[in-house]
Design a protein around this nucleic acid. Structure first.
Lengths: 147, 147
DNA sequence: TATTGTTATACTCTATAACTATA
DNA sequence: TATAGTTATAGAGTATAACAATA
């Protein structure tokens, strides 16, 4: 337990566990699973032209994305439609219901995060989040920088 | 991409991915797997009186620990012996070779972490690591606070 | 009877490779 | 032929339950 960095991956792993555990009941309250939320969030800025593109956005294999899309479409949260320009592609977009769901869920998740960070001195929290975003390379959606 | 916290779990997950990817080749260079390193590290402060206790230390099920211990013992990095006081227990401890291995590996991992954090302003790195440790609840081994 | 270490079984998640339809 | 979406198959990882030795 050195005063310097102890084991970055170890500490990150534990904190991620804490964060995920905190998110889980919130997601459940909105009847969403982890990846549902990721997918709906990725669609928030607008339709995506192909499922493969969406898979890249959420960093998930396109095959593993399909059951999720099936479920979300059946729940009426998103819509898949063939692209007339290239009938192989499926353009995916939120329904009004889906947009409403992800907006409400995000608000609750952010509230939980604020509670977690509230235990810290404010300037520490600010630095932490800023550094975290920088290290995580959280760029503004490189795959669709047009927005 | 709000200036406030974006999605804590999301960012943490990505940064953990970066950290693990950076650790992997280092571990491989020392012929260790991720959990090998966790187990050897947990033993660094001294013998552990039972495998179940060791499992709790590394937060892993005792059944999943066994193949790891088998491998590490076969590699001569640790030793299992029956506790004479209670012959059901196996006391686990590092061999000299195991201690040497984990020490060397840790040095390389820490060097990698320093490289990662070197991209930041020094005071940002300090705050980040301090907050991370605090949020991760990285207490000085509650299960064996005697040391 | 309860507990430690171990083994065996089932389940989930993931990765890879076919298959269909479009181009 | 090449690509998007889909389905199917195999592998890794995980959880749970049974088992032998000891208390």
């Amino acid at each position: 337990m050195s005063p310097q960095q102890y084991d970055l991956a170890h500490a990150l792993s534990r904190l991620l566990g804490v964060a995920l555990a905190a998110e889980e009941p919130v997601l459940a309250a909105h009847d969403l699973q982890m990846w549902d939320y990721a997918v709906l969030s990725a669609l928030e800025q607008g339709p995506v032209g192909a499922q493969a593109e969406l898979a890249a956005l959420v960093r998930r294999d396109k095959t593993r994305l399909i059951p999720i899309l099936d479920r979300l479409e059946a729940a009426g949260l998103l819509r898949r439609s063939v692209d007339p320009a290239d009938r192989r592609n499926r353009v995916v977009e939120l329904t009004a219901s889906g947009r409403q769901r992800v907006t409400a869920c995000r608000a609750d998740i952010r509230a939980g995060e604020r509670r977690l960070l509230a235990a810290l001195p404010p300037e520490d929290a600010t630095v932490f989040v800023r550094v975290l975003d920088r290290l995580a390379g959280d760029l503004p959606d490189p795959a669709r920088a047009s927005g």
